[in-house]
Nucleic acid binder design. Structure first.
Length: 665
RNA sequence: GCCGCCGUAGCUCAGUGGUAGAGCGCACCCUUGGUAAGGGUGAGGCCGGGAGUUCAAUUCUCCCCGGCGGCACCA
């Protein structure tokens, strides 16, 4: 199967165990594997040559460090299996649906996708058919052959067979880059590789999962392609485990739990705005109390500002020009009720529901004269903002149109930026730690293409933020070009139960807005200076953060956040009075307690409250009444423990304290 | 906003060109049961909205609205 090569200089290949094998001339990975042993030859998927993944059929021409990769080398194996799976899917699609063009098909976490151009998009119903054809192609065990093509010939070839997207991709590759094409049977695709030696090596641990629309090159002004997602593993057991994982993740979807636990609902008459139910609002308020205390501790003063503001503020802030389509605009006028008299009263001005709090905070800053000695001034607000989001973007609590930010603005001097950024990172880290998210990702979002300010000012701003990040010791990455038009930002990302990441916390450095809205302070030399603003939020919004927390804890909230902390319930009605007395003591101790006197079996009541995710159930019967004890059943355990009732309450009260890692830090 | 799918009882879902069904939940009755469903009876639906085809539409077609999965956008 590998090429026969004429003997030239000897080639020495060093294996991972340090041993060296010498060949007369260039040698392929296949030959090397065969030389080592038939078992390895059978298991071999690709070869790593000096750390680079190569096809087994590609001749190794000089002395190298090599390693034969098999399915036991998970990471490398999954990479190549998934990529081959995408290719085999593309072949299946083109066999079944002639005229469909291929575009790109990369690996993603847990699988792969391939984008196709086809007049009639695929539907879920097509997936089993495509999958069946894929299995057939695997069975054909087609040899996969790597070919290096001339760039122009490649472009011509793909154009001639109607693959305009592929031709476009090649045209965009830098000159001089080798154009490699992989052929399996009579199907071929442009690809960097490497690939499996034959389709049969793929195995059967794959599944097509969903179809979706996706824009060509991720640009919404381009045409929409049809994307098929799949997952692929080294064996069936892993595939099954993955599918099970997805199923489990879906069970903790906050929209599902929100319904089951009676936390909130959404309805179309207030699309994208949350109706918080009593249970959900307990969580909301507890979280708000928590962040309010923490923010105060870090030197912020809380304010409350108007919802409706004159459009002139938004013009000055730049939002009118850049954010207008996302704003709810409200004319200040009252149309007449009478049909034939369209008289309008009011100022006729345009108002807008605030999509951000910054201009309002600047108004507070502007009251009175500020000295450089007053800075930094840290303003916080549980700011209710409205944004008219694209309808397709709305998603439970994660993406809404009315949201409450734990917003804040730091007005400071330029020389205070780094210090204030460090302080914010400390605040945010303490909050995330206390809320159960010690691991989060920080990205430094740098200058976008369209931006205000000079390159020098951006150099400085980005440097200040990066200096701060270095100082904090947080690990960070970059999001090139993702900064706001006015300045760079830090993005803090959390991952949800099904692997999607959400940006929550943010810090945005803004040297301009305060000036644009006429804010200034008196500097040491008596001159008027505009303060720098740091727009920042720790949780981001209460809506999204609670959505993430519900999923993170699968509804089993820590005691301090649980809507109902304990249910007291008797086994028979004979213990009703005792149950009531325990319940009243729990209430008096400050616990969110409920009393369940329903005439139902204890089994039923335990099941019911467990479903509702109540963290603790105090079951009481004759024995408990006699000894002044309770039988405690904690959520997630099928064990009970009998404890003196005052102690049981005391323990829960202690456990229900808000977390505070800053207290003894 | 774009592509695809979906919309039947409070919830989860069957189903049919002749105006509907299950389980859970709910109400009432029986049951007093030691830790994830004790039993019975009953109420509850303009089958998302509008138009069209048809003798007849919840069912077929079109439009709208909403939900879901992605894309784009974003906290």
């Amino acid at each position: 199967m590998s090429e026969t090569l004429s003997a030239q200089n000897p080639v020495n290949l060093r294996l991972p165990d340090g041993s060296v094998r010498t060949f007369d001339g260039p040698v392929t990975g296949t030959t090397l594997a065969a030389d080592i042993g038939p078992g390895l030859l059978k298991a071999a998927l690709l070869v790593k040559v000096n750390g680079e993944a190569w096809d087994l059929s590609r001749p190794i021409e000089g002395d190298s460090d090599v390693a034969i990769i098999t399915s036991r080398d998970k990471e490398e194996a999954l990479d190549i299996l998934r990529h081959d799976c995408a290719h085999i899917m593309a072949q299946a699609v083109q066999e079944l649906f002639p005229g469909t063009q291929v575009t790109i098909g990369p690996n993603i976490e847990d699988g792969f996708f391939y984008d196709f151009a086809r007049a009639k998009p695929f539907t879920e119903d097509d997936l089993p058919v495509i999958e069946e054809r894929m299995r057939e192609i695997v069975k054909r065990d087609l040899e996969v052959i790597r070919e290096v093509w001339d760039r122009n010939e490649a472009i011509e070839h793909f154009k001639s067979i109607g693959e305009i997207y592929k031709a476009e991709i090649i045209s965009d590759l830098p000159e001089g880059e080798p154009i490699t094409v992989y052929r399996q049977g009579d199907w071929l695709d442009l690809c960097r590789g490497p690939h499996l030696p034959s389709t049969g090596k793929l195995g059967d641990a794959f599944k097509l999962t969903k179809v979706a629309g996706a824009y060509w090159r991720g640009d919404s002004s381009n045409e929409m392609l049809t994307r098929i997602y799949g997952t692929c593993w080294t064996d069936k057991k892993e595939l099954k485990a993955y599918l099970h994982r997805i199923e489990e993740a879906e069970k903790r979807d906050h929209r599902k739990l929100g319904k089951e636990m009676d936390l909130f609902h959404l309805q179309e008459e207030a699309q994208g705005s949350v109706f918080w139910h009593p249970a959900g609002y307990v969580m909301y308020n507890e979280l708000q109390d928590f962040i309010r205390a923490r923010v105060t501790q870090f030197g912020y003063k809380e304010v409350k500002t108007p919802q409706l503001l004159d459009s002139k503020f938004w013009e000055q802030s730049g939002h009118w020009a850049k954010f207008r389509e996302n704003m709810f605009v409200v004319p200040d006028e009252i149309p007449s009720i009478e049909e034939d008299a369209p008289i309008v009263t009011g100022s006729g001005k345009l108002m807008a529901l605030k999509p951000m709090n910054c201009p309002a905070h600047i108004q507070i800053f502007k009251q009175g004269i500020k000295s450089y000695r007053d800075l930094p001034i840290r303003v916080a607000e549980m700011g209710v903002v409205h944004r008219n989001e694209a309808h397709g973007a709305l998603h439970g609590l994660m993406r809404v149109r009315q949201m409450t930010q734990d917003d804040g603005h730091v007005f400071c001097r330029e020389d205070q930026i780094t210090e204030e950024t460090i302080k914010f990172c400390e605040l945010l880290s303490s909050v995330y730690r206390d809320l159960g998210f010690p691991d989060f990702r920080v990205l430094l979002a740098t200058r976008p293409e369209k931006r205000d300010g000079t390159d020098e000012s951006w150099d400085l701003a980005e440097q200040r933020l990066e200096d701060a990040l270095k100082e904090t010791g947080l690990e960070y990455g970059f999001a090139p070009g993702e900064g706001a038009f006015y300045g760079p930002k830090l993005e803090f990302h959390l991952k949800d139960a099904i692997g999607r990441t959400w940006q929550c916390g943010t810090l945005q450095l803004d040297p301009n807005m305060a000036r644009n809205l006429g804010a200034s302070y008196v500097a040491e030399d008596g001159s008027k200076q505009a303060p720098v603003m740091l727009h920042r939020a720790v949780l981001g919004t209460f809506e999204r953060f609670l959505g993430i927390m519900i999923e993170h804890y699968a509804g089993r909230m820590p005691l301090w956040l649980a809507p109902t902390q304990v249910v007291v319930t008797p086994i028979t009605s004979e213990a009703d009075d005792y149950a009531r007395s325990v319940y009243e003591k729990a209430l008096a101790a400050g616990l969110r307690a409920e009393l369940d006197l329903r005439n139902e079996s204890i089994k039923y009541k335990v099941r019911d409250h467990s479903h509702k995710k109540v963290p603790a159930i105090f079951v009481v019967g004759g024995r408990e009444a006699e000894n002044n004890t309770v039988s405690i059943r904690r959520l997630g355990s099928n064990q009970q423990s009998v404890v003196d009732s005052p102690k049981a309450i005391e323990d829960l009260v202690a456990e229900a304290a808000k977390p505070d890692s800053t207290a003894n830090a």
